[in-house]
Design a protein around this nucleic acid. Structure first.
Lengths: 183, 183
DNA sequence: GGCGCTATTTATAAGTC
DNA sequence: TGACTTATAAATAGCGC
């Protein structure tokens, strides 16, 4: 019967660290480094890898560490990762969701500011001016009301816009709102 | 002419991130994760990987990060690596060279101590005792000289041993000195 | 972006030196 | 440990959907 030359199929499970196990580690680590390097070059991405050598046995601590593509670069990449916010670290869709989340926050703040402004405008338009109405001619009052209406319209438009987009963003609809938010 | 179906040979160089480049990144990242996982299982080692997605273009920051085998485990492994001393981080042959370096330090200290002891012994054997010589019989003096000779021999042996191994270690010769250093 | 296909290239398990 | 060999398992480039 012929011996099994060449690559035999193996199942992926723990190989005790005898000679062959160690051989496997060495070979595969080498192959892995090559693949990491290829990915890095092909796609121009920052990749790093940290790997501790296999344990001799259950008592002995594991072997020395292997890092790719080198200590400083690896730590730099990890530091870049660590410096990200929890959301940025966790969410796969960083470029979308994080951006939108920040946008939502900004819009909420703007919205509350505008609502407050609006309340103030409404207050001003109703109460304090009441006592001053006698100082104006009818013509002036008409102009004033027109002016107020226009102002209110603008304010309501703004409220509507913000509300609408707040809803759209919550629904995950990315409208082409970017660049349209200048009042 | 037949189209190139199946795997074509590629040279490892930067692929701009158009559709195919992105495809390559996705496929290879998937393959890489698989290989990392296999290494981890086969050899029972701690491996982690951090990879930032490819840049859209030179202006845009690169994509969201990919970590393996997951945020917390990856950071744990990196932390373990960071907690190592500089020597342990740098040296590939931690188990050898770092061990030997520490051994060298110890040997140097021992050597200087022994040299000092030796000097002191020589001093003691020559000067202070001179004035005491009259207190001893010839027989006693003979024993004393023998004793001193034996002591000196031991000391010189030790110096020779230390010097020899100091030289061997510097020359990178790993003799089977471990376990032989008990005086 | 993902999945399937397929021809090829690569990676590599086992063995030898 | 490392280098080379061999036969075979896996990964994957280039397409199409």
């Amino acid at each position: 019967m012929q011996k099994q030359m060449g690559r035999a199929k193996i199942t992926i499970k723990w190989i005790p660290r005898d000679t062959s196990g160690n051989m496997t580690f060495m070979k595969r680590k080498k192959g892995l480094k090559k693949k990491v390097e290829e990915l890095s070059i092909l796609c121009g991405v920052e990749v790093c890898m940290v790997c501790f050598g296999p344990q001799m046995d259950q008592q002995t601590a594991s072997d020395h560490p292997h890092v790719w593509p080198g200590k400083s670069k690896a730590l730099e990449i990890v530091e870049r990762y660590r410096s990200l916010s929890k959301e940025e670290q966790e969410n796969k869709k960083l470029d979308n969701s994080s951006f939108l989340e920040q946008r939502i926050k900004k819009l909420k703040v703007e919205l509350s500011i505008k609502r407050k402004e609006n309340r103030e405008l409404e207050m001003e338009s109703v109460y304090p001016w009441d006592s001053c109405l006698n100082f104006f001619t009818d013509e002036q009052l008409k102009d004033l009301v027109d002016y107020i209406d226009i102002r209110l319209e603008t304010v309501y438009d703004r409220i509507n816009f913000l509300s609408r987009h707040e809803r759209e963003i919550y629904n995950g609809v990315e409208s082409d709102m970017v660049g349209f938010c200048s009042f």
